Amino acid sequence: MPVRPRLTPAIAQTRRAVRQVLAELAPKKVLLAVSGGADSLALSAAVVFEAKKLKIEIAAAVIDHALQPNSKAIANQAAERLRAIGVQEVVVERVVVRQTGEGLEAAARTARYKALEKIRLKQKAEWIVLGHNLDDQAETVLLGLARGSGLRSIAGMSAIDAERRLLRPLLDLPRQTLRQACADAGISFWDDPHNEDSKFARVRVRKLAGELEKNLGPGLAEALSRTAASAAEADEVITDLATKCVKKALVKTGARQVSYQVATLSKAKAAVRRKALHIICQSAGAKNISRTQILALDELLTNWHGQKKSSLSGITVERVANQLVVKSTKPLTPGAC
């Protein structure tokens, strides 16, 4: 690989996207999350180039999910390519993927992010930098639409996720641009065969997106990305209003029980009220909360006629006189979101 590849449009676009995010945040050190694929290696090359000018330290992590027979060799090859690009501090870590009811994809993602966060803390890096691109964002929106789980699910991925310390500077660049950036720089990359395996939901969505683009014309990924941005903005406003509503409605908190004023919650607009209920349940420890469950809880506020308490994954919610009472088997964090 040339030490200084010629500046092609693909390389320039990738560097510019990285520069905008890193210059805004000015971190002292970042951790690159690298699979060995084109996206993460194009990202790595751009970060190496921009970090020198911005005086940012770099480390990289390659997570071996041990889901393919040659996964160890693939991970080590990715580490070698990172060192050739100019990343000297590279950690290769194998994780155990424990399947849950959410499937192999979700289990692998959970194991990966847990390992990345552990490495980030050990490396004293401020952010984990990921190579998600425009096409990934479009696929995420389509998956969210299919699940029908609200604004948050179609808001896609955030370029800057402060809560989880994640950066995704390439969300506006298509996958092909990143592959071209690697080709232009002489960087070899690995094509994961799982990306063609239709047993995975994301792969099926990827193929569907390709068919939709053929039938509807070019620009589908960009349109879905704009939809995600609009949904994220709306969700931010609703979440802010709902959080304030929850705090205002809070009556009493205990180790395993929290009470909220029905009158305060019921006065809120439907979108804010239901988001407030989601926040209340989530802070009590409930997971995978469905819209059907939220609508049933909403009935306790707006159509009360003596309903029985509702149970949601480890918590119960019931109306007692003029209060909404949330109980959990674990200590609660009232109003957290």
Rank of each mutant, 00 (worst) to 15 (best):
R109E: 00
I74F: 04
R152L: 08
Q68N: 01
T302V: 15
D39S: 08
Q68G: 01
V47E: 08
G285P: 03
M1P: 13
V34M: 01
A234D: 03
L220T: 06
E102G: 02
Q88F: 01
I128H: 00
K114C: 02
R6Q: 08
I154N: 03
E236I: 06
S266W: 00
C281Y: 06
A223D: 12
E318N: 01
I74G: 01
K247H: 15
K252L: 14
L301N: 10
N133H: 14
V258I: 09
L324K: 06
S328M: 09
I294L: 15
V48Y: 12
L216H: 12
M1D: 11
K53A: 10
A255K: 13
K327S: 15
V3K: 15
T110K: 09
K122T: 09
R112L: 12
A111K: 04
A23F: 06
T329D: 07
E89R: 14
P193H: 04
D64N: 15
V92T: 13
A60I: 03
E117D: 15
L265R: 03
T253D: 09
L130E: 13
T333I: 05
R204N: 05
V95Q: 10
G103R: 06
K309H: 11
A23K: 14
L166Q: 05
R94G: 13
I85L: 14
Q77F: 06
A60C: 04
A234C: 08
E211D: 15
R226C: 10
S225V: 03
G285Q: 04
E211M: 15
G285W: 04
I11N: 01
L32Y: 02
I11Y: 02
M157D: 09
K124H: 12
L54N: 06
E126P: 00
S290Q: 08
Q323W: 05
K252T: 07
A284D: 04
D39R: 03
L178Y: 01
P174M: 10
L82S: 03
T316H: 07
L54I: 10
A45G: 14
